[in-house]
């Protein structure tokens, strides 16, 4: 996790857009490894494929469309006012974590509500060994339907924005 923070700080300091985009790929991959450690294997698959793969490709595509004019070397210095705002917000949030249940506590409220039912009944009710799949496709199927609607809307938006004057290349943006 500390590695993750180091990568993010490097992202803030780094000049040059291209290296920043490559670092986001590394950052996504690190977070996927973290998800494996936290027992969320399905999320790790998706993050590695979609977060590290497709997002990086999209950003590189954007950079190539924008052309050379974007090799920015804006002066990277800390700006005081945003820094103060961010530090105050962060301090308030960290103060708020005092009320959270301890990390990994099996009796935390999040584990008491519907999760036991999913874990105990889904084998008979849905019949799949992977509980994440059965929740995704069966118990919370409407979420997945809404997700498809969002992706469709985003695809249409991208096509409308980019397809007007340039007939060609943005096929890859519309697939996800």
């Amino acid at each position: 996790m500390t590695l993750l923070v180091a990568t993010a700080i490097a992202l803030v300091k780094l000049p040059g857009l291209f290296s920043a985009v490559m670092l986001t790929g590394i950052y996504s991959l690190l977070s996927a490894a973290l998800f494996v450690l936290l027992d969320a294997v399905d999320v790790a698959f998706t993050e590695a494929a979609v977060g590290a793969g497709i997002t990086t490709v999209l950003m590189l595509g954007t950079l190539s469309l924008l052309g050379v004019s974007t090799s920015d070397h804006e002066p990277i210095q800390m700006q005081p006012i945003p820094l103060i705002v961010v530090v105050i917000t962060g301090a308030a949030l960290i103060f708020a974590t005092q009320d959270m249940p301890a990390f990994g506590d099996p009796d935390a409220p999040a584990h008491r509500h519907v999760a036991p039912r999913y874990l105990n009944e889904s084998a008979t009710e849905v019949g799949l060994p992977n509980v994440v799949t059965s929740v995704l496709a069966s118990y919370r199927g409407y979420d997945t339907l809404g997700e498809v609607a969002v992706i469709f809307t985003a695809g249409v938006g991208v096509m409308l924005l980019l397809g007007r004057r340039r007939r060609a290349p943005r096929g890859d943006q519309d697939e996800k």
Binding site: A40, G51, M59, H111, V135, T144, V158
Partner: peptide
């Protein structure tokens, strides 16, 4: 087992996040 519900929610969120990123980049 780990709680499966947050995993499902985040799976959805990751894919939606990529869709919004694509729109922002466009």
């Amino acid at each position: 087992y780990a709680n499966p519900l947050p995993h499902v929610l985040i799976l959805t969120a990751i894919v939606v996040g990529v869709a919004t990123t694509a729109l922002a980049l466009a």
